[in-house]
Design a protein around this nucleic acid. Structure first.
Length: 551
RNA sequence: GCGCCAGUAGCUCAGCUGGAUAGAGCAACGGCCUUCUAAGCCGUAGGUUGGGGGUUCGAGUCCCUCCUGGCGCACCA
């Protein structure tokens, strides 16, 4: 907010400089305001002088001097200085920082929320696991990442739809049904042949067991796989939904791939592509002429058996997304889906849609460490660790926090030894503890009969300690941080911000006393504490982590 | 062989559109609880940002090249 105001003032000064022929306007929009990394370089600074000097072949410090003259009498600024190669450093008046508390108190839960994406309809597709087994930690990362991204987008005014795309037909499901049937027969004392690439997880046995109890073994000689498939699908989906429920993740829509066939969309896509001359037949298969669209090789979209490959329904699915009128489509995929993206994008473009409206977030894999060694995971062999197991060990708050600590591009090392340890070094608790402490202090104030009064009557001008101003500056940065994190689909920034803010608070707590004999000072500091509590709470809830009042 | 991602302190990782002397947590070492929650704080130590070129006032960030690791490169999804 303060940065935005300063930006406006700076833009105004820049234009004034143009009017006065100090410099040309070629640098308009090229300069920035930044927060210096080091102390002693102001609260904010601009590179305007260096940018202008670079374009006009002038001395940057001379340009800076002209700029400083134009900035005289700015009500935000305490003072301005020129430093280094030509930076202009701004020192904001303390009362500006102190007034942040007025905003926080006025806005409460809404502090940080913006309308940056107002009116934008965005579809976020994530998880999208087919019902062949419980969610593994890899899915867990995607689920938490997708959910956090949705929360960020909602908090910036977007109209978010969360969608789960799944496929309950095809070879995978056939093998699943065969696996269940084999276990079912085993339980009846037979020795059936287990499918070569069948699903070996114990959950398959559980499903078979359940069926057996329900029907008493009547399906022993059943050749039709459909009852086994139906039961498996229903059971596994219930399991997946239970897991998502425990993570407090909810979808607005489940999109079944099969509906694309029933509604004729698959055929429609093929026909549209054919009309554009982008489809041909060879070796009994139907090919999509992706080379025509700048890709290295053509791809089969309908196999010689008559079955489509995954590309065709994927393209049809995205065509549907466009038809549903979304302004922005965010797909969250595991990095193993990298190869599918260019083909689908090419398909979308070929159909006349704007593929720049699609953003694909590819997250790298989760590496699980147990006993100091990497756990090898395979869905088929059921050697994976499920989200449920993880939740049982660490709980949803720790799971969420850990999954969000890394940016999507980075591989995520999940150390089970550390996470399951009754962890004192756990960063989640560090932030939650901060919140609990803040709440405790406010309770203590009440017990001691110190009333906060109203914030506009509080002597906020007494908040002059450097730690207090640091905290106020950090809090003031929250709305902008949220906007950036949302725009970049990067929830990990919220995590880092919260850790930073909590650290600043803990330092302050140890150095200065909030509750004292000095009533006016106590009140002012309590408003600081109250504002902090709001920001920490808003941040934690934004990423779906609880903000406990006691610990 | 080709594509995408990564390579930053002993370990795990931040570093926002290129900005000033590269940061945090953990681990290590030394301190701090009669006083608002010690799940905390303070201090010390730790670096050729994978190597080499280039672009410019300025590079962890952009370009080229090489090396290493991960994920892909089906008429599987």
């Amino acid at each position: 907010m303060i940065r935005t105001r300063l930006q406006e003032i700076l833009d105004h000064c820049f234009q004034e400089g143009v009017t006065r022929n100090y410099w040309a306007d070629s640098a308009a929009g090229a300069y920035t305001i930044e927060k210096p990394k080091r102390e002693g370089q102001g609260d904010l600074s601009t590179n305007l002088a260096m940018i202008v000097a670079g374009r006009d072949k002038k001395n940057p410090r001379a340009v800076a001097t002209q700029l400083v003259a134009l900035l005289a009498d700015c009500p935000l600024l305490d003072r301005v200085e020129i430093a280094g190669p030509g930076f202009v450093n701004f020192y904001i008046r303390p009362q500006i920082w102190q007034s942040v508390l007025l905003d926080i108190v006025a806005l409460g839960d809404r502090f940080g929320i913006s309308e940056a994406g107002a009116g934008k309809k965005v579809l976020v597709e994530f998880v999208s696991a087919n019902p062949t087994g419980p969610l593994s930690v890899g899915h867990g990362r995607q689920a938490v990442l997708g959910d956090a991204i949705c929360r960020l987008l909602s908090a910036t005014g977007h109209q978010v739809t969360r969608e789960y795309y799944y496929n309950d037909a095809g070879r995978q499901m056939r093998v699943l049904a065969q696996s269940v049937r084999a276990r079912y027969r085993e339980l009846l004392g037979e020795d059936p042949q287990f499918p070569e690439d069948g699903y070996q997880g114990s959950y398959i046995v559980d499903i078979a067991q359940e069926m057996l109890q329900e029907d008493g073994g009547g399906l022993k000689d059943q050749e039709d796989l459909s009852p086994f498939q139906a039961k498996a699908e229903q059971s596994i989906f219930a399991d997946i939904n239970g897991t998502l429920e425990r993570l407090d993740i909810h979808f607005d829509n489940y999109f079944n791939e099969h509906s694309l066939y029933d509604d004729g969309h698959i055929d429609a896509v093929v026909n549209e592509l054919r009309d554009k001359g982008l489809v041909y037949e060879q070796d009994g298969a139907v090919w999509f002429k992706t080379t025509e669209l700048g890709l290295p090789q053509d791809r089969v979209i309908i196999k010689s058996t008559g079955e489509p490959t995954y590309r065709l329904p994927d393209i049809a699915y995205h065509r549907e997304k466009f038809k549903r009128g979304f302004d922005w489509m965010v797909n969250i995929f595991g990095s193993d889906h990298i190869a599918t993206v260019p083909d689908v994008m090419a398909g979308v473009r070929a159909l006349g849609y704007d593929d720049s409206k699609i953003t694909v977030v590819l997250h790298q894999f989760v590496t699980l460490m147990r006993d100091g060694k990497q756990v090898k995971m395979s869905t088929r062999k059921a050697t994976f660790v499920t989200v449920d197991e993880l939740l049982a060990e660490v709980g949803p708050d720790v799971a969420r926090f850990f999954f969000l600590m890394r940016k999507a591009d980075s591989q995520l090392e999940f150390d089970l030894d550390l996470a399951t340890k009754q962890s004192q070094e756990n960063p989640v608790y560090y932030v939650q503890y901060c919140h609990a402490r803040l709440c405790s202090m406010l309770r203590q104030a009440g017990d001691k009969g110190i009333h906060l009064g109203t914030v506009d009557h509080a002597r906020l001008d007494l908040l002059v300690e450097s730690e207090e101003l640091d905290l106020l500056k950090e809090m003031a940065a929250y709305p902008e941080l949220l906007r950036h994190a949302a725009a970049d689909l990067a929830p990990h920034r919220i995590i880092f911000y919260l850790q930073d803010l909590a650290g600043k608070f803990h330092s302050y707590y140890n150095k200065h006393r909030v509750l004292s004999e000095d009533v006016a000072l106590s009140q002012a500091r309590l408003w600081l504490i109250s504002g902090l509590r709001t920001v920490v709470r808003n941040g934690l809830l934004l990423i779906g982590v609880n903000a406990p009042e006691t610990m």
